[in-house]
Nucleic acid binder design. Structure first.
Lengths: 149, 149
DNA sequence: CTGCGACCTCAACTTAAGTTGAGGTCAAGC
DNA sequence: GCTTGACCTCAACTTAAGTTGAGGTCGCAG
């Protein structure tokens, strides 16, 4: 293995500048295990340049709605995190597109339901689909279940 | 404790049961000013029945992505919160549909960008649309932005 | 030598939307 | 008269994704 040249490494300030992510957030990502660094003799973090791409992946994933925890799992699934290949990127992209599709579908359904409901005042009725989303929308917590008035 | 005389009023437990919202959340909503109650002689909360509808409105609004703060503003805008009319409901519904439309558009754009990017590996490039969403997507604060030193 | 700027650590704070728990009251049922 | 269940208050805790601030180190320029 060839030893990497100095120019392969960048400081946290440069990483921040290149990615648009604040230094404190980068520290935070590192604490969470999303990125890794080495230290130089002054105890300053040194990142291999490919970390720019990882941070960029994180940004995109966050925008599609993934939590950092999700993203960590994705990253851990990469065969070689040091070299994110075109295939890796494609696979992630497709997974994320799926996720986006789901979200879009959910919102569209919600909107359609709202259209059904507008004007009928059914908000007060037991059978309103908006108020009894049961299986169509798997929103996390305790949704309304019953509406008798 | 519940007198027939005032069948218009319901306890917090009943409100919770009817809406599927936990008692603690209902207390919370009340602290936030989203709903209001009277107290009986035992200092128990009593809600007029129409509060069921308000709580339902809150649920739907939350599912379309509004924060409680937003919702409070909407509710304060109602001419008479004690009687949410068909017109009120229509107006809210249309506003919420707009909001949903915006969200759907944003997600769709993001997905299209991702389609453009998949396979080109441009994630590593400075000019990638995904990484520089600037004006196309107005995500709240999380997107990459230039931090000029 | 002094100052500056980039970096370091660690702890505490932030926001949203609640939840959890301790300790207390009240009315009803047995 | 005691227990039970529904309710009360208030404070502290939770999660996510960081931010902010205090206090400290390092190395280079003047």
């Amino acid at each position: 293995m060839q030893k990497k040249l100095i120019s392969e490494w960048i400081s946290v300030g440069v990483l921040s500048e290149r990615t648009g992510v604040s230094v404190s957030a980068l520290h935070f990502y590192e604490r969470k295990g999303l990125i890794k660094s080495q230290r130089n003799t002054s105890n300053h973090r040194q990142y291999p340049k490919h970390v720019i791409r990882i941070v960029s992946l994180i940004q995109v994933a966050q925008r599609t709605g993934f939590s950092l925890e999700d993203i960590l799992l994705e990253l851990e699934g990469l065969p070689n995190r040091a070299r994110v290949t075109l295939e890796d990127w494609e696979a992630l992209g497709l997974r994320w597109q799926d996720e986006l599709d789901k979200k879009i579908t959910q919102l569209t359904e919600l909107k359609d339901m709202m259209a059904d409901c507008i004007g009928c005042g059914c908000l007060s009725l037991e059978k309103c689909r908006l108020l009894n989303p049961s299986d169509t929308l798997g929103e996390k917590g305790a949704g309304p279940q019953r509406m008798t008035e």
